[in-house]
């Protein structure tokens, strides 16, 4: 269980004159929870976007389960089993929660006939079960755009689970969520990892969260990979403290 499910090697990406990522390499081990930290604007989200195929990278290689994916499009990568959630939560805001869940089923084995399957039965049961897991069961028939921001984050997370991904990239899952809900969310992230076997890669600013959650953490700074290691190692790394922890 220790082989790398995501292998990023020497990836660079610039926007015009801004070098957002320079020679970034990292590994996410199958079944692990990996963290990515770094000050605002250091290139974390750019790295996520590169991995899931939002834009072409300038150089380097990105492999998912040993397969080169840096030339694939977003939809193709998602159908391989690697999903991401967004920093700015994105759900289908005019549909109710159950519908949001039901359309999030895996499209890995999509065929013409699965486009036209009925919405009742097994899919609906699983949708309701996962809404219960996310603590949204009582909201299941509400229009999702009417939910509070924190609940929308939970819904987006539940939608990702509905897809049964192998790997889930979470962009600041606790941003904007009140402290009491954060504990529930951490617990659910852990359970998704342990019980459902989903590999997680998490961008996070909340140090308490990421230090508790992740087994291995990468720290970016100004587009460069600054350091990586176990949470306790990073906490004591002077470069990380200078760049980030001591920065406020």
């Amino acid at each position: 269980m220790s082989e790398a499910i995501i292998q990023v090697d020497d990836v660079s990406k610039s926007y015009g004159g801004v070098k957002a990522n320079v020679d970034i390499s990292l590994q996410v081990k199958r079944g692990s929870i990996t963290g990515i930290i770094g000050p605002n604007g250091c290139g974390k989200t750019t790295l996520f976007n590169s991995i899931v195929g939002y834009h072409p990278i300038d150089k380097g290689s990105i492999k998912f389960e040993g397969k080169e994916i840096s030339h694939l499009l977003v939809g193709d990568i998602a159908r391989l089993g690697m999903l991401r959630t967004f920093q700015q939560t994105r759900i289908y805001s005019k549909m109710n929660c159950v519908d949001n869940m039901q359309i999030s089923v895996s499209h890995r084995a999509e065929s013409k006939s699965s486009m036209f399957v009925s919405r009742k039965g097994e899919i609906r049961e699983r949708a309701e079960h996962l809404l219960e897991f996310a603590g949204l069961y009582s909201k299941r028939n509400l229009i999702s755009g009417d939910l509070s921001f924190g609940q929308q984050k939970l819904l987006e997370f539940a939608m990702a689970l509905m897809n049964e991904p192998k790997t889930l990239l979470l962009d600041e899952p606790t941003a904007g969520i009140n402290p009491t809900l954060i504990n529930g969310l951490i617990d659910r992230l852990r359970r998704a990892n342990e019980e459902l076997g989903i590999t997680l890669c998490v961008i996070e600013h909340n140090m308490r969260v990421i230090m508790n959650l992740a087994e291995h953490i990468y720290c970016l700074s100004n587009g460069h990979m600054l350091a990586n290691g176990k949470p306790e190692e990073l906490q004591n790394d002077q470069r990380v403290i200078d760049a980030y922890l001591g920065g406020h």
Binding site: G75, A78, R79, L83, R84, F86, R90, Y92, R108
Partner: peptide, 16 residues
């Protein structure tokens, strides 16, 4: 409806 509400999200979720 998912395409109507947020097509980029739909893409990211693997909907063809």
């Amino acid at each position: 409806n998912a395409i109507r509400d947020d097509e980029d999200k739909a893409e990211a979720m693997g909907i063809p």
